Simulated assay, not measured.
Amino acid sequence: MIAMHKVRVGVSLAALVACCGIMSGCMSSPTYGTGKTSGEQLFDDITDIASISAMTPKDKGVTYPARPGLVVPGANDRENLAQPQQSLASKDNPQWVESPEDARKRLADEAEENKHNVNYRSPLAAADSGRNRVSDAEQTAAYRAARQDQQGTYNERRYLVDPPQAYRQVSDPAALNDLGTPESKKEKKRKKDAEAAQQSSTWWKPWQ
C-alpha cells in the first residue's frame, strides 16, 4: 500500500508540473461560458483522477451487521408442520369444468355399464332420438324457403342489397311466361336453310 501511495504521489506531481506548463500557454484561452479555461479544466480532471487522499478508505466508520440466521421451528413442532395448499387447477377438483370429450367418454362408459339394464336411457341416445327429427313436409318447406332466399323471390325486402319492390316489377308480365322458340324447331329451321342455300348455289355450278 505504501509503494502504491508513492506511485500515486509521483503521478500527481508529474501531472501538476505538466498542467502548469500547459496553463502557462493557455491563460488567454476562452472559457466558453464555464468560467474556466481549458487548461484549468484539464488540471481539475487530472487532480481528481490521481487524488493524493486516496489512501483514506471510503468505507471508514461504516459497520456491517451480520446476517441474521434462519427462523426454524422447534424440535417438538417439526412433526406438526402445516401441509402445503393443493392447487385448485386440477381435474380432481369437483368444481373443475368437464370438457365435451370427457363428458362424452363418461356417458359412453356409463352406457356400456348399463347395457343390460332395460330401464336405463342414455343421454347420447336421447340426443339422436326421433324427437329431434323433422318430417318430410317440414324438410320440403325449409328447402323451398331456402331456395326463395337464394333466388331472391321473397316478397319483402330483407337485405340492403335488395332493390326496392317497385324496381322488381316487370313492365310486361306475359314476357315472364314466354319460353321462346324450342330448340327442336330451331334445328329444323337451320337444316332447311342449309338445304335451300345448297340448292341455290348449284344451279349455275353444275360440276359441284
Rank of each mutant, 00 (worst) to 15 (best):
E98I: 13
E98R: 10
E98M: 15
E98P: 06
S99E: 14
S99K: 04
S99W: 03
E101Y: 12
E101G: 04
E101P: 09
E101D: 08
E101L: 11
D102L: 15
D102I: 09
D102M: 09
R104W: 05
R104Q: 05
K105N: 15
K105R: 11
K105G: 09
K105Q: 15
K105F: 14
R106G: 03
R106E: 11
L107S: 12
A108I: 15
A108L: 13
D109G: 14
D109A: 12
D109R: 09
E110V: 01
E110G: 01
E110D: 13
A111P: 14
A111K: 12
E112L: 15
E112Y: 14
E113Q: 13
E113F: 12
E113V: 11
N114I: 14
N114S: 06
N114R: 15
N114K: 15
N114E: 13
K115I: 09
K115L: 10
K115E: 15
K115A: 10
K115F: 08
H116A: 10
H116K: 07
H116G: 07
N117M: 14
V118W: 14
V118K: 07
V118S: 13
V118P: 14
V118I: 11
N119W: 04
N119A: 07
N119R: 03
Y120K: 03
Y120E: 04
Y120I: 00
Y120C: 03
R121N: 14
R121W: 06
R121L: 07
R121C: 02
R121M: 06
S122P: 09
S122L: 04
S122G: 06
S122Q: 02
S122M: 04
P123K: 00
P123L: 00
L124P: 01
L124W: 05
A125G: 05
A125H: 00
A126D: 11
A126I: 08
A126G: 06
A127V: 04
A127T: 07
A127L: 10
A127H: 07
D128R: 04
D128V: 04
D128N: 07
D128I: 01
D128Q: 06
S129Q: 01
S129A: 03
S129H: 02
S129P: 09
S129C: 03
S129I: 02
G130W: 03
G130C: 00
R131N: 08
R131H: 13
N132V: 02
R133E: 06
R133L: 03
R133Q: 08
R133K: 09
R133A: 05
R133T: 08
V134L: 06
S135G: 13
S135V: 05
S135I: 03
S135N: 04
D136A: 15
A137K: 05
A137P: 01
A137S: 11
E138K: 03
E138M: 02
Q139K: 11
Q139S: 06
Q139W: 05
